[in-house]
Nucleic acid binder design. Sequence first.
DNA 1: CGGATTTGACCGGCGC
DNA 2: GCGCCGGTCAAATCCG
Length: 371
Amino acid sequence: MNEMKQNHNISIVRINSVEKREEKKELTRTALKTENFNMANSAFITPPPTSDIDHMPNVFSLSTPPPPPPPPPTSSIFDMIPCDIITGGDPKGGSLGFMDLLDINQDFGASASLFDWCNQNPVVGSPQQQQSFVPSPASSVPETSEVLNNPATPNSSASISSSSNEAGEDAFQQVKAGDQEEEQDQDKNKKQLKPKKRSQKRLREPRFAFMTKSEVDHLDDGYRWRKYGQKAVKNSPYPRSYYRCTSAGCGVKKRVERSSDDPSIVVTTYEGQHIHPSPIIRGSIGILADSRGFGAATSSFVFPQPLYQQKDASMYSSSPSLNFTSSTTRFSPSFSLQERRLGSPPSLHRDHGLLQDIVPSQMIRKESKEE
DNA sequence: CGGATTTGACCGGCGC
DNA sequence: GCGCCGGTCAAATCCG
């Protein structure tokens, strides 16, 4: 918590289009390079169907990237820069997405979050994905889908990426079902100490990652996190921190690490879905409609979150939701701000740019070979 | 005093 | 089988 500070600078982050998985281990850092980004490998999400747009006041069309807006004085997740969203690489040997680099797994399963949004929103060149916006399992989201496009902002970009499990829906459900089992399991283990579980292969929850150019490692996304570990990253002077959502029963985790190549870049990876209501639905739709871009000091975070809630109040968003504004061509991942609604701690004030400063520029979704 | 963070140990997966 | 490494646990410590 004390890590949360201010002074986040929104900037564009480019990722290397790295080769293959064998390099994965090295990728976490090499992939973060901010140079040589292979545009050809990036996929962009196109504007959602009109019907969806109705629910999403601020829809950002990545297919027609407008000129990069000037960086806001204070960056925040609410003040996101337009970003290129990449919905994954070609699992068949096509481009390698950021997730590959990060070895991130993502199952868009039934997640009602950024993942869903991205999946449910049409992707250029992927007709299949232009069908529904209803949160759906991976089945409706071809993992192989990838769209090529030009970066919205050649020079700016925060990257957001995610990957899918091969098991897709199945995996997601297993994860869901497994959560409870795991919890019980963990409780037992906690008392028995060592005899650790895992006779079964641990299921990996959907993951979603993005890069942020920020001076602070731990961005404020509105949720409350407890740090439960920190590990040194091989070949990197910067450690990786592990956080877990403090909400009871919520097993969402996130990893935060700084790129060794570019210390100014912070890579945040979310895993799992919050099982509790969105912490903060700032102004909900009303605010959404009020959002005018992320650069504005008054910009509010926006998102799919409200969107989902409209469609299905029972759905919770776990991952940072994203909001796209066509007017500003900005892309803003919005993280629920429960704390704010409940009485936000000082650190959560938006001017302190926290997660708000995230600059998702590239959203890469990629199929994972894991599990 | 309770909650959050630190940190070394431990565990499991994976590659060699 | 062994070692490396990522991820997690949990006791100790810190902090408001």
